[in-house]
């Protein structure tokens, strides 16, 4: 490439550096709002931005959020491609709807795969729409076969591993010691009226301390006595969705980040939180069995 020098010089008049970490450390976080809203960052960079914002002053967080909001409205109004989805997709979706939306899910079947979905859907349909259990089974089975074909080998085992994880013990070992100020997102979780704390062992040593708040739809994760990841590796956190879809990356923890609490959002739709060891930069999907896993179900 001919412009390697330009890249290495780091700065252009617009003020961005070549990498997100430098942008963040040089006070340009708010200017990343558009790139962030466009999903034009990778998972590790998204995590880095969120991690930075979690500790940023309220005013900076507010301006970032406002610019992200405007960028999202702009994108939704600009890219308006339409295409008719396949016939029958709605029926298939309706047949796979979990029994109850948003946060009211019962504690049973925490890590139910797609297989678990058909039954409750019928129960939630007392009005007697012809949702047709056999159809649901058939379509669900087809989808499962496809999913399994696509999933890396071991994904099913991975999920089973999470399901089997030891139930976390409630205890008073505080994440609270790391509190900085009241408006901090970490604090908002820790100070929530419904927060509960729990610890889960990390294989390899140490433990992860969780503070979970359903009302804030978030959890704070703090590693305690966990050894730094091996060279070239990072810890990666995942939320395992209740709907059986692929785990969603919640960010990376390198040796440095290990000492700080991390906020994980969107736990309402998640059955469990898992932590794996991944190559530096993280993976799109877990590639190793979890070193720690905690059910999040209500």
């Amino acid at each position: 490439m001919t412009d390697i020098n330009a890249q290495n010089s780091g700065r252009v008049p617009g003020g961005f550096a070549a990498d997100i970490a430098t942008d963040l450390s040089s006070g340009r976080a708010v200017h990343l709002a558009e790139v962030y809203a466009l999903d034009a960052v990778d998972d590790a960079e998204r995590a880095a931005i969120e991690h930075y914002l979690a500790a940023a002053p309220q005013a900076e967080r507010d301006s970032f959020a406002e610019r992200v909001r405007q960028a999202r409205e702009t994108l939704a109004g600009t890219f308006t491609a339409e295409e008719e989805p396949p016939a029958g997709l709605l029926d298939r979706i309706m047949a796979s709807l979990p029994a109850q939306p948003s946060g009211q899910a019962p504690a049973t079947g925490l890590v139910g795969g797609p297989a678990d979905s058909a039954g409750p859907a019928a129960a939630a349909n007392p009005a007697g729409e012809p949702s047709g259990l056999p159809v649901a089974d058939e379509l669900g089975a087809a989808r499962r076969r496809r999913d399994e074909r696509r999933r890396p080998r071991g994904m099913r085992n991975w999920l089973i591993g999470v399901a089997a994880a030891a139930v976390i013990a409630l205890g008073g070992v505080g994440v609270g010691a790391y509190v900085a100020n009241q408006n901090d997102p970490v604090n908002q979780v820790l100070l929530a009226s419904d927060v509960r704390e729990a610890t889960v062992e990390v294989s390899g040593g140490g433990r992860a301390i969780l503070a979970v708040s359903p009302s804030k739809d978030a959890a704070v994760v703090k590693m305690d006595g966990v050894p730094a990841p091996p060279a070239g590796k990072v810890y990666q956190m995942w939320l395992i969705p209740k709907d059986g879809s692929d785990p969603q990356s919640q960010g990376l923890m390198d040796a440095e980040a290990l000492s700080k609490p991390a906020v994980v959002r969107g736990i309402r739709s998640a059955a469990a939180l898992g932590i794996t060891v991944e190559p530096a930069g993280g993976s799109p999907k877990p590639t190793t069995p979890p070193v720690a896993a905690a059910p999040l179900g209500a």
């Binding site: 780091g10 617009g14 003020g15 961005f16 070549a18 990498d19 990343l32 790139v35 809203a37 466009l38």
Partner: peptide
């Protein structure tokens, strides 16, 4: 250049 693209995306949006 990488910084240029970030600027273009920001300014364009």
């Amino acid at each position: 250049a990488v910084p240029t693209i970030k600027s273009r995306i920001r300014d364009g949006l």
